[in-house]
């Protein structure tokens, strides 16, 4: 399917509904002027990779006109330079730090700054703020910081119904009103058909969405990527002409969805995963790293790290995003499963 058409059917996520949901959750906390417990001055929002916590909190901060705190520079982290933190204390206004995972490195010199930040957020000396953090970084920071469990929020995972509603609501343009999504091999409906067709008892429903929701562990960003990759303009040749053309009789346009078992997913060898497990884990703990930052965190030379990243990119396990290497949305479920089985620290999602 052409990229422009995909973009109209599955556009980049709009974070406004998430902002509204966060508003609802924080209503009580926002109206209290004097918190009895100073450790409740900061609220943490934890989300898995591709869960969109950074974008969502940035949108929330702009909506409420709260100060957005940018993470410290890499040199500030490694030299344990606390001036970044002191600058934050000087401002009395409420703040949002969307990406706590950018404030530390898994390096012997990379933890001091984030420990100070977490200590101060616990004592309430930073004022009222919201801290967003990737779930893998949070799992590691809970081991590296000995403070008590702070108040934390997490978005509910997207199940089959949530995904169906999200995909339907995000379709842009009024011409999409009569768009139906059917599985390319069986003709079964992947998203619920228009209301006037629901009564038709002969309509078959696809198992695509429940499988997708379970596979992506409810993470919207990964579901979004797979959904985009699954759309196409023509059905399988095996589908009968009658089944393929029945939507034109109902004045609907059909978007065909590749059956789950035909979607091209990464299939790395276990040898590749085992060889590169520490690299993949390090990328997850930091929610992405540049090539130059990655090498000092691993017992690897820069050239070896480059070669490893190239192999992982060929296997569709990592992607480059603005000079940073990240675990790809399609590769994440496989990488997470492997790291869990191999005894690595994993997130709680």
């Amino acid at each position: 399917m052409p990229e422009a058409q995909i973009e109209r059917i599955v556009p980049t996520p709009d974070w406004q509904p998430a902002v509204a949901a966060l508003d609802d959750t924080l209503t009580e906390w926002l109206v209290i002027e004097h918190l009895s417990n100073p450790s409740h001055a900061c609220v943490f929002v934890i989300a898995p990779p591709h869960g969109g916590h950074g974008d969502m909190l940035t949108a929330w901060a702009r909506h409420h006109d709260w100060r957005i705190v940018n993470p410290p520079k890499l040199e500030q982290i490694l030299t344990q330079d606390l001036t970044w933190l002191e600058e934050q204390v000087r401002h009395p206004s409420p703040w949002v730090l969307p990406n706590l995972e950018r404030c530390y490195l898994r390096h012997a010199s990379g933890l001091e700054l984030v420990r100070h930040l977490l200590d101060r957020s616990h004592t309430g000396s930073l004022g009222r703020g919201i801290i967003g953090c990737d779930s893998w970084a949070w799992a590691f920071l809970r081991k590296a910081w000995n403070g008590p469990e702070p108040p934390a929020l997490a978005a509910q995972g997207f199940d089959q119904q949530c995904l169906a509603r999200w995909f339907q609501d995000s379709i842009a343009g009024s011409e999409m009103d009569r768009l139906v999504f059917r599985q390319a091999d069986s003709g079964a409906y992947v998203l619920p058909p228009p209301a006037d067709m629901i009564e038709d008892k002969s309509i078959k429903t696809s198992e695509f969405l429940p499988i997708l929701a379970a596979h992506v562990r409810g993470i919207p960003g990964i579901a979004h990527a797979i959904w985009r990759a699954s759309l196409r303009t023509t059905p399988d040749e095996t589908l009968s002409d009658t089944a393929a053309n029945e939507d034109s009789a109902n004045q609907c346009s059909t978007v065909w969805v590749t059956p789950w078992h035909q979607i091209r997913q990464p299939t790395p060898t276990s040898a590749l995963l085992r060889e590169q497990a520490t690299l993949l884990h390090t990328l997850l703990l930091h929610a992405g790293l540049t090539r130059a930052t990655l090498a000092p965190l691993l017992p690897l030379a820069l050239s070896s790290a480059e070669a490893a990243l190239a192999r992982l990119e060929d296997a569709d396990l990592v992607i480059r995003h603005e000079n940073e290497w990240r675990i790809s949305p399609m590769g994440y479920p496989i990488v997470r499963r492997f790291l869990r089985d191999d005894g690595y620290l994993i997130d709680g999602f």
């Binding site: 390096h107 012997a108 933890l111 590691f140 884990h281 005894g343 620290l345």
Partner: peptide, 16 residues
């Protein structure tokens, strides 16, 4: 403290 963090930040550590 430094040596504890050296171990904690090793990518090969069994952190549990």
């Amino acid at each position: 403290r430094i040596l504890h963090d050296v171990a904690l930040t090793s990518p090969l550590l069994q952190i549990d």
